[in-house]
């Protein structure tokens, strides 16, 4: 935003921020139900997409981005946890999107697949509920410098919707 004096009627496109060049598709990692988006059922702010499937530790937790990318995998809990073991203990797969933007996938159970890896929808663990959770699910969150962004998920992805594996959740 600038003063009117220096506003330009027509510019060639400005240098796009690195994030502008990226448009990855975020997809459901297993057959699932969308259990929360911006709001929880209670009306509490959530600001992310949760997809759930009740078969804890059965489904592999595939990384939910349909592109080959490098995932930084952090294990905070080693055992099988389906129903939560406290805030901050969630296992995380983190995708660096540049310019301070991150995409995070939480709550999976550690397995021999849980290591930093470059892949397209590969498994980084099993579906689980590590961290602050009341059931097995995957939480997908986008943020810039630690501030949550709620606009990435598709307007057509709504709470209660059944998603097939690989079905669009949004664009990051």
């Amino acid at each position: 935003m600038r003063s009117p004096k220096s506003r330009l009627a027509a510019l060639t496109a400005l240098v796009a921020l690195p994030t502008a060049a990226l448009a990855y598709t975020a997809v459901a990692p297993y057959p699932s139900t969308v259990t929360a988006t911006t709001y929880y059922s209670s009306g509490t702010y959530h600001g992310a997409v949760d997809v759930a499937n009740s078969r804890c530790n059965y489904w592999g937790a595939e990384t939910g981005v349909s592109a080959t990318v490098y995932w930084n995998v952090t294990v905070r809990t080693s055992g099988v946890v389906c129903n939560g073991n406290g805030s901050g203990n969630q296992n995380e797969a983190l995708l660096n999107l540049g310019s301070g933007w991150s995409f995070r996938q939480w709550h999976w159970i550690k397995t021999s697949d849980s290591y930093d890896r470059t892949c397209n929808r590969c498994q980084v663990g099993n579906l689980g509920g590590t961290g602050n959770a009341t059931g097995a699910h995957s939480h997908f969150q986008k943020d810039q410098y630690g501030t949550k962004n709620t606009s990435w998920y598709s307007s057509y992805t709504s709470k209660g919707e059944a998603l097939d594996r690989g079905e669009l959740m949004g664009y990051i």
């Binding site: 009740s54 078969r55 059965y58 592999g60 946890v81 073991n85 397995t111 579906l127 509920g129």
Partner: peptide
């Protein structure tokens, strides 16, 4: 609003031993 999971949690799903990676 923590409560029991209504369906499907693996029986005996407890912290401790490492899970076997689910087959793709």
């Amino acid at each position: 609003r923590r409560g029991p999971v209504k369906a499907g949690a693996a029986p005996g799903a407890e912290a401790g031993e490492e899970a076997v990676a689910g087959a793709p």
